Structure formats: structure tokens, C-alpha cells
Simulated scan of single mutants.
Amino acid sequence: MESSLCNVTVAGHAVRVAVRPGTGTGTPLLLCNGIGASLDLLQPFVDELDPAIEVVSFDVPGVGGSPDPLVPYNFALLTWFVGRLMGELGHDHFDVLGISWGGGLAQQVAFQNPRRCRRLVLVSTATGSLMVPARFDVLRKMVTPRRYRDPEYAVQVAAELYGGKLRDDPGRVKALMHDESRVGSKKGYLLQLLAGAGWSSLPALPFLRQRTLVLAGRDDPIIPLVNARIMTRLIPRARLHVYDDGHLGLVTSADELAPRIAAFLLAD
């Protein structure tokens, strides 16, 4: 079943949303994307995910098809916004999956919504400002959204930034990041960077109550694997799966990871 696109107004702000209806009656899954990425980037994963699961994805204000936010925000404020969004869509309870920057948002959603958020999936992500960082040359390339605006530059840096399967096939990044994806504003990207400045989930992880699946690539230059091991040790009900790919493994290895995630979400 294909996703339907719409604009939803939350607290006076329009946000671009995609909903893929599920054939089952279980808990819907909310997707939180990486920095600068529109919801289109994760479509290969959505296509591989069990059709029984309803999937809700959205463009963060200032990203993709969502206009710039009315005011700057942090993860706590954006979590409140996301909760209102899911309410507008009729969902009192939901699961949440976050990748990279979106993994920080997903953790905050779980912290602030212990009764609404049932299960948590964290992919290629870490604990914010208190983490084992990437190399400086990798971090330097993450400061600007150039890779989303310049397809040739994206190919040039794909192996160094994303690792995994994109080391052997860097040209694939064009299809992933440019064929369908929408590019947000430079202001939107900057506000995403600022939203996570100084934020860390590290002290709160032992208090997470949700069952959690942590997924990490063996070759992820942006989020070194050790971060996933730390998170799994600190979250009481977490388990770790390490896959043979890189930072974008959720889409480049969607055929492997989607069934594993579906099994976790659909299990009793």
C-alpha cells in the first residue's frame, strides 16, 4: 500500500506528512529522520517494512516540504510538536524509530511520552553532546547541507561520510538523496543543528521504560559503533543488532533490516 502525502497544521505551523496505512490493527510507527533529510529518503525502508504496520513520517519544520519554523526549537519543544501531530492523526499510542539526528529526537519522544510511546528503535544514532565523536574531518562536512544540494559533492563524500555499501558504490547516493528528496532551507538546517546543541540523553537512558532495539553499522564514520554498545548497556530493556553496512544502512540494507525491525515491533 502506497503512502499518501498531506499537510497537517500543528500549533499554527504546516508540516508535510506521509502516511502509509497498515493492513493490521497494531501500533503505528513514527519515523524521525536524520538532519537535513526529507521523509523521502526513508522510502526504501518503508517499502520493505511489513505492510501490517502503519507508518507515519514527516518533514521537520524547515526541512523538505515543511516551511521554516515560526520560532527556534529544541528537542523538548519538537517532541511536544510531534505529540500534537500524532494526536491530529488520531494516534494516542505509537512506536517511534529515529535515525541519526532523528534518533536523538526519538529518545526525547520516549522520555516525554512514557505512556504514549510503546517501543523504540534507534538506528545509527548516539546520545548527543556526550558521545564518542566522529573524526573531525567527518564532522566538518556535516556542518553544512551541501551534500543535499550538490549531487556531485554528495558522491564525492559518500564513502567518507556514510561508509558501508556506499564505499563501493558512492554513486548510489544520488538516487537516495537527490532523485526524490526535497531540500529544505539553509535556515532549517541550522536550526536542526542548534536544536541538538548541548543536548544529551546519556544521564536519562537508565530511566527509559520502553523496549528498545538499537541498530548500528560496523562501518559508520558518523556514529562510531561504540556509541550503540554504550546505549544498549544503559537502556534497561534494550538489545543490539550490528549489521554489515554504514550510516545509511536503514535504506541501503533495507531488505535485511526492515524484517528485523518488523519482528521487534510486532512481537508480543
Rank of each mutant, 00 (worst) to 15 (best):
C6L: 12
V8I: 15
V10P: 01
H13V: 11
H13T: 11
V17N: 01
A18Q: 09
R20E: 00
T23A: 14
G24A: 12
G24R: 13
T25C: 14
L31Q: 06
G34P: 12
I35Y: 07
S38A: 13
D40C: 02
L41G: 00
Q43E: 13
Q43T: 06
F45H: 06
D47W: 12
L49K: 00
A52L: 11
I53T: 06
S57D: 14
G62H: 06
G64M: 09
P69Y: 08
L70P: 01
L70H: 15
L70G: 13
P72C: 12
Y73C: 04
N74K: 03
L77Y: 13
L77D: 15
L78Q: 09
L78T: 09
L78C: 03
T79P: 00
W80E: 12
F81W: 13
F81V: 03
F81A: 05
G83L: 02
G83Y: 04
G83K: 00
R84Q: 07
M86T: 12
E88K: 14
L89Q: 03
F94Q: 04
D95R: 01
L97T: 06
I99F: 05
G102W: 02
G103Y: 00
G104N: 07
A106D: 10
Q107V: 04
V109Q: 04
P114F: 12
P114Y: 09
P114G: 08
R115E: 08
V121G: 00
L122A: 02
S124K: 05
T127E: 09
G128E: 07
S129D: 10
L130Y: 04
L130F: 10
P133M: 05
P133I: 09
A134E: 09
R135M: 13
F136P: 02
K141C: 05
K141I: 08
R146P: 04
Y148M: 07
Y148I: 00
Y148T: 00
E152T: 11
A154G: 03
V155S: 01
Q156H: 11
E160N: 06
G163S: 09
G164D: 01
K165M: 10
R167E: 11
V173E: 05
A175L: 11
A175D: 14
L176P: 03
M177L: 15
H178L: 13
E180K: 12
V183S: 07
K186D: 10
K187F: 06
G188N: 07
Y189G: 02
Y189K: 12
L190R: 14
L191G: 02
L191T: 04
Q192I: 03
G196Q: 11
S200N: 06
L208H: 08
Q210Y: 10
L213R: 04
D219E: 15
D220K: 07
I222T: 03
P224N: 11
V226W: 08
V226T: 15
N227T: 07
N227W: 07
I230A: 05
T232M: 08
L234E: 12
I235W: 02
I235K: 05
P236K: 10
A238V: 08
L240N: 06
V242Q: 07
V242M: 08
Y243G: 05
D244N: 15
D245R: 00
L248M: 15
G249P: 01
L250M: 08
V251T: 11
V251L: 05
T252S: 13
A254I: 04
P259N: 11
P259H: 14
I261E: 01
A262N: 06
A262Y: 08
F264H: 03
L265V: 13
L265C: 13
A267W: 03
